[in-house]
Design a protein around this nucleic acid. Sequence first.
DNA 1: CTCATTGATAGGCACTGTCTATCATCATGA
DNA 2: TCATGATGATAGACAGTGCCTATCAATGAG
Lengths: 294, 294
Amino acid sequence: MNLRDLRYLLALAEHGHFGLAAEACGISQPTLSVQLRKLEDELGLALFERGNKAVIPTEACARLLGHARGAVAEADAILTLARSLRAPLAGRLRLGVIPTLAPYLLPLIFAPLREALPALDIEPWEDQTSALLERLQRHELDAALLATGLGGAEWQSLALFEEPFLAALPPDHPLAAREVVSQAELARDILVLADGHCLREQALEACGHRGALGGTLRAASLPTLLNMVAAGYGTTLVPALAAGAAQDAGIVLRPLAEQAGRTIRIAWRARFPRHAAVEAVAGVIAGRLRGFAA
Amino acid sequence: MNLRDLRYLLALAEHGHFGLAAEACGISQPTLSVQLRKLEDELGLALFERGNKAVIPTEACARLLGHARGAVAEADAILTLARSLRAPLAGRLRLGVIPTLAPYLLPLIFAPLREALPALDIEPWEDQTSALLERLQRHELDAALLATGLGGAEWQSLALFEEPFLAALPPDHPLAAREVVSQAELARDILVLADGHCLREQALEACGHRGALGGTLRAASLPTLLNMVAAGYGTTLVPALAAGAAQDAGIVLRPLAEQAGRTIRIAWRARFPRHAAVEAVAGVIAGRLRGFAA
DNA sequence: CTCATTGATAGGCACTGTCTATCATCATGA
DNA sequence: TCATGATGATAGACAGTGCCTATCAATGAG
């Protein structure tokens, strides 16, 4: 049995006339005769009583018609739904974002994304890099905004923009009087984020620290870290997008003597079929942040 | 798109593995690969993300799966329903019966029919011959029990049994003393049914009357006619199956000098596909009434 | 590095859905 | 009564396609 056969069945039941039903189906009358006979043979029962003036469904046929209509309707629903899903730039896109980026970047890009890709429904998910990659691998995310490069043929990624690091100092800190701060000076009383944040390692590396800091306070989030710096517990490096939040917290920002920063990338599974949507999102974000490093 | 394709789709979504899904569908793995690729091409979207360890439905696919399940379920319902409808001796059979027969015959045959054809659901409909034939023609009845022969290639019929006529007399009627009553004597004060009842014409013909009776009382139904005879308004002919009812009404019955009666037949449209059911019913009725005329 | 697993591809075969042409049946009307 | 038109069924030919076996390509494990 076939969806086509069911369409023929419905057409014949509706028209009560082989010729007209065949025309409605876009086939010839003999074809309809043959196909319907086959369907009757397959089902093992007479579906229509052929009269001289009319072709009338048998009672058995009448009881099948509802199901036939149901099957055809479901099939049509699939076709319709597929047509609406076909546009790669439409539908839900689950986008992971690391915590040191999300609160500062997302407000900047939501409006441009909505304007450029109105049919794309972006669903953000904030977590640390390793968690995001696991979710990507489990198909629980479609793409992620990260600050680390990643290798392996299973991943694909695009660089979006460079985000410089700035020295963050309490207002009464001796270095706050300088125009420019060197990493070595900053490193003496630097505070960093807790384990798992990629910014932690990147900040340590930028300052020349190699191992972990013993006994140093560690903040669980960037806002907390900024508050600790503002309260005079030490210094830190902040990514440039968080500059506004840092200043609001009462922190003094200074450029680094040796420029340092991180590259924000968007990453996805290499086999992800809707990579076109990801690339479109990448284009919008890169466009919005163009020239940001300067 | 095809029901088969949808079954493949569901199997692959369930197993997440081309080889296993193909085996479940009873086809080879390459066939499943090809067919699924075709379905993806037709729908214009990727349905599965092929990984090295697993084949995972895309979100678009997940939204289609429900409809696919629906379509397949409806198709299966058609197959199941067809299997149960296939038995020709099952299901509803709408059986017309003329009014001068129904109340006397039906009580006799219901039990044997239920026993012999338990799956057949007989739905009686009482009306006069012409109305029954119209309903048959409109497919509102499947068969009818009639007392008249009927010609034309569009009809088919089987004789079931002969039903003799008996002379029906008021207890105090002069003829009630006879052992046998001749039609000519009976005809002098005969009462007949109203127009439309086939028994009216048959009774008149049996008594030698050719035209209509002027000014004679006409009963709308056989029970009424029997009551009129019992009350002494005149005589009549009753079909033998109504003998019990006539005697209950206080009527004296006598055999006719020249045997007369009517043939009860079952009739159906020549093209009716379930004629096997009608013929089975005919067999049961004929068997129950065998030897009735004697 | 080698081997096993998994999905994709190629070529060939058989089935079947479709067409045109034609027939059989039946009702209608001159 | 017979010709005519309408309707569905049948026959034969052809093209499309679903399916198989054989094989390849990519990937991951030992």
